[in-house]
C-alpha cells in the first residue's frame, strides 16, 4: 500500500445522504475476480443523468469526494472502495460512514474523513462556487483545510501510523504469530471444526 501523509486535490460535491454501497457500485459489477477495473461501475445508475455531479466537466478531475451522512452503508463489498480509487478519489469526507465501508477504505488507503455536517455544508458551498477550490486532507496533522477554513478530524494513532507508513496489516499481525499459536493452544475442544476435504 502506498504511504498516505497528506493529499491536496479538488472536491466533488455529492449532495446526497445514505449513499449505500449498492449505489456506489451495483452488484452486477462485483463478478470480476480482479482488484482493479471497477471505475466503470462507480455510481453507474446515476451516470446516465447529465446533471449527476461526476458527469460535470468542472468536477472531472476531483479527488476528494464530499458526501452527505451515512456514506457507504449496506453491503461489505470492498469493490466500493476499489471503484472510488479507480476513479481517482484519494479521500471521502462525510458526516458519518457505514462502519464496514470505513474499515475497508482504511485498509485500501482511501481516507474516510468524518467531519460535522456544517463543515460538509461549507465544503459543498465552496466547491460549488468554485470547482477549482483545493481541499487538503492532512493525515499527519489530522486536519482538513479548504477555502480559508480548517477542521480537525479524529483517527486513532495506530491506523494513522499504518497509513502513513503504508504498512500491510497481515504482515503486522504475523509479527505476533507466537501469540496466535498460544491462544490456539488454549481454545476449548468443544469449538466447532469444519470437516476439511480429504
Amino acid at each position: 500500500m502506498e504511504k498516505f501523509t497528506a493529499h491536496t486535490g479538488t472536491g466533488v460535491p455529492l449532495r446526497r445522504s445514505d449513499v449505500d454501497t449498492d449505489q456506489i457500485i451495483p452488484a452486477v459489477y462485483l463478478k470480476r475476480v480482479t482488484r482493479t477495473g471497477f471505475a466503470d461501475g462507480l455510481f453507474s445508475a446515476w451516470r446516465d443523468d447529465p446533471d449527476f455531479v461526476l458527469n460535470k466537466p468542472e468536477y472531472a478531475g476531483g479527488t476528494v469526494l464530499v458526501a452527505g451522512p451515512n456514506f457507504g452503508t449496506g453491503s461489505s463489498r470492498e469493490h466500493a472502495v476499489w471503484a472510488l480509487q479507480d476513479h481517482g478519489f484519494a479521500a471521502v469526507i462525510a458526516p458519518r460512514f457505514g462502519d464496514i465501508f470505513r474499515g475497508n477504505a482504511l485498509k485500501g488507503g482511501l481516507l474516510p474523513v468524518q467531519l460535522p455536517q456544517d463543515a460538509v455544508d461549507t465544503l459543498w458551498q465552496a466547491v460549488e462556487a468554485d470547482p477549482g477550490t483545493e481541499i487538503t486532507v492532512d493525515l499527519a496533522a489530522r486536519q482538513v483545510r479548504a477555502a480559508g477554513h480548517a477542521w480537525d478530524f479524529t483517527i486513532d494513532d495506530f491506523t494513522r501510523w499504518r497509513l502513513m507508513e503504508g504498512l500491510d496489516d497481515i504482515g503486522l499481525t504475523l509479527r505476533h504469530e507466537a501469540d496466535i499459536t498460544a491462544y490456539e493452544a488454549g481454545r476449548a475442544s468443544f469449538r466447532p471444526r469444519i470437516a476439511t476435504p480429504a
Binding site: S76, R77, E78, H79, G103, N104, K107, I170, L174, E177
Partner: peptide
C-alpha cells in the same frame, strides 16, 4: 460481523 475482502485475506492468513 461482515468484513471486506482485505479482511477476508487477513483472516485466511492469520485467523485473527
Amino acid at each position: 460481523f461482515g468484513i471486506g475482502t482485505s479482511e477476508v485475506e487477513h483472516v485466511l492468513a492469520t485467523q485473527t
